[in-house]
Design a protein around this nucleic acid. Structure first.
Length: 544
RNA sequence: GGACCCGUAGCCUAGCUUGGACAGGGCGUGGGCCUCCUAAGCCCAAGGUCGCGGGUUCAAAUCCCGCCGGGUCCGCCA
């Protein structure tokens, strides 16, 4: 909706859209007068006045004002009315955009050598939120978990499994990491074992007997646990794609022969492509490397999708550049990569290998317990308490990760993770529940009619409606910049303004005209909060 | 050594792409608000050299240069 108003302002002004901005002082403001003032060495205020005099308020423009050289635009009453009506009419479809195209989003893709830890969660949450937002925008989205079943660390986990067996009493991914950690210790004590690891890798790459069976078993056990964790976080993958598949289906050979065909492969025993640094694609012993299979994967992606987005930790920046450069050399489509900085512990960075990490499962269950404790003395059934605590916990976790811009490093702190005073996601859920509660009571009293009346809007109501009109723009910005944190920030501001409205405005106690008007606003807020929370994979609770 | 990212009140964070109207929030601190739609809420107050130093500009948290602090990467690992 807001875009329509913006278009009208641009049509009216006919200036470059860079000079039209959002502002605290107006719905939109134009700073062109400053630019002209500079060129003509005149007072910006005079210029703004002259310009404004010639402007015709068209379409949704209600009022134009000049202050301090800014030309301020205010949306019309008609705009406010159309906004509310559109939101209520389109309901769960409000915010849908008309983008098209097949997109692949690959995220999480943690090595299946143990459970997800809080660093992986950042990946999953960014990726899953982006997938939801891209779907909302109209794209045909598929999500992949790229299963790294061929790595050295998987070989070590397999070695651990052979030496110690898996503890069946434990969640399978935790059982895998136990033997993975022990195997690493074992190797450190006895470097001879190194040879066994190498042999395992070689056997697996050549699809030889026991190795295939054991790799498959260990990887599947780990994935079983990982999937369970992801499910509890409302994170979904459409497909799990195993890296070794690209060896079997010929894509590795294909990508190598394309490179060979372009004369890009050099040899000195190993095969490599010479970028700034040589990138090895094939070892002397004939086996492939991670990047080789990933190139094959991207060849495969390019044949099926118009765009692909990968979510990667920033330690993969150089890797990502190398991958992209090689794809470029053979004219294949490159991935768009979202890098996120590390989540570390107060005592330093995490390490699965050394068992130094906070598992996602641990975090989820502790946050759940805390939420459950808070909800305990409410007048609700046990089932309801459980459900509320669960979605408040998931919301708290997801929101905490998604609200921070990906390029910011995070230091995990238990006391903060468990402090519900600072949980902004439950604040948004609460605001939504408040809306629901009002609407529920309106229905109960048999007068749930909604009719927005722009002419009786108070300042806060007006601010709220303008804010609601921006929801689709926020989604579009995320599509442009791949930053789901914008949604988090937006929902927070909607909740802020709504709560301010709630404090000063009674709804149910008012006469029918005001009551219907405010019920319409409350319903619209409810819809935007619910649709927005959905984009972040957080349940919009109707009561809490 | 080279490359990339981050540095905003006691703590966390938005804004930086495209320079402009008092740098927004949150936690914590001090004070106030439930005979009224959920107090997981609201209001008020204190708290800032926007890492430091230069430069560009009428105007810099935002652009440029240099430095400092923290993180990451630079494997025939993934």
């Amino acid at each position: 909706m807001f875009q329509l108003f913006r278009k009208d302002v641009l049509k009216c002004l006919r200036v470059d859209e860079r000079f039209v901005k959002e502002s605290d002082h107006a719905d939109l403001t134009c700073t062109i007068a400053f630019k002209i003032a500079k060129e003509e060495k005149r007072n910006p205020l005079d210029i703004a006045r002259e310009l404004a005099e010639r402007l015709e308020p068209v379409g949704y423009i209600g009022k134009i004002e000049v202050v301090n050289g800014y030309i301020n635009f205010f949306a019309s009453e008609e705009f406010l009315e159309d906004t509310i009506n559109t939101i209520i009419d389109t309901d769960e479809n409000y915010g849908n955009l008309r983008f098209e195209g097949k997109i692949l989003i690959e995220h999480t893709s943690a090595n299946p050598d143990g459970p997800l830890h809080i660093g992986h969660m950042r990946n999953s949450i960014i990726g899953d939120s982006l997938a939801r937002i891209f779907r909302k925008a109209g794209f045909d989205v598929t999500t992949h978990y790229y299963v790294n079943d061929m790595g050295r660390q998987i070989a070590i986990a397999v070695l651990g499994y052979r030496l110690f067996g898996l503890d069946n009493a434990k969640k399978p991914d935790h059982a895998v990491v136990d033997v993975y950690i022990k195997a690493n210790e074992e190797i450190e004590k006895n470097p001879e074992l190194e040879k066994e690891v190498e042999k395992l890798m070689l056997d697996y790459e050549n699809f030889e007997g026991d190795a295939v069976r054991d790799f498959k078993f260990v990887v599947e056990r780990a994935l079983e646990g990982i999937k369970q964790t992801l499910r509890s976080l409302n994170v979904n993958h459409d497909e799990y794609v195993w890296e070794s598949e690209f060896l079997r289906n010929g894509y590795v050979d294909r990508v190598l022969s394309i490179l060979e065909g372009r004369g890009l492969i050099e040899r000195d025993g190993a095969w490599f492509v010479k970028l700034e640094k040589p990138v090895i694609l094939r070892r002397e012993n004939g086996t492939t490397l991670y990047i080789t299979r990933d190139l094959a994967y991207h060849l495969w992606k390019g044949e099926r999708f118009e765009r692909f987005i990968n979510i990667l930790g920033s330690d993969h920046k150089l890797y990502g550049r190398q991958l992209s450069e090689i794809l470029d050399l053979i004219n294949l489509r490159k991935p768009e990569i979202v890098f996120f900085e590390f989540v570390s512990l107060p005592e330093g960075s995490m390490s699965t290998r050394r068992g130094k990490f906070v598992s996602a499962d641990d975090l989820i269950s502790k946050v759940y317990e805390e939420a459950r404790r808070i909800v305990e003395d409410r007048d609700l059934s046990e089932d309801e308490k459980d459900r509320i605590a669960k979605s408040v916990a998931v919301g708290a976790i997801r929101f905490d990760f998604v609200k921070v811009a990906p390029e910011k490093p995070m230091i995990f702190d238990w006391s903060k993770a468990l402090d519900f005073e600072r949980q902004t996601s439950s604040y948004i859920q609460y605001s939504h529940a408040r809306c629901c509660s009002i609407l529920r009571k309106a229905v109960k009293s048999g007068m749930p009619e909604l009719e927005f009346r722009p002419e009786i809007c108070t300042d806060i109501e007006r601010r709220l409606v303008i804010l609601l009109s921006k929801f689709p723009c926020v989604i579009e910005r995320v599509i442009d910049e791949l930053k789901p944190s914008y949604i988090a920030e937006y929902l927070l501001s909607v909740s802020n303004v709504f709560n301010e409205f709630y404090r000063g405005h009674r709804v149910l106690g008012e006469d029918s005209e005001v009551r219907m008007h405010r019920l319409a606003i409350v319903d619209a807020v409810r819809i935007v909060l619910r649709n927005g929370l959905d984009l972040l994979g957080i349940e919009a609770l109707e009561r809490m």
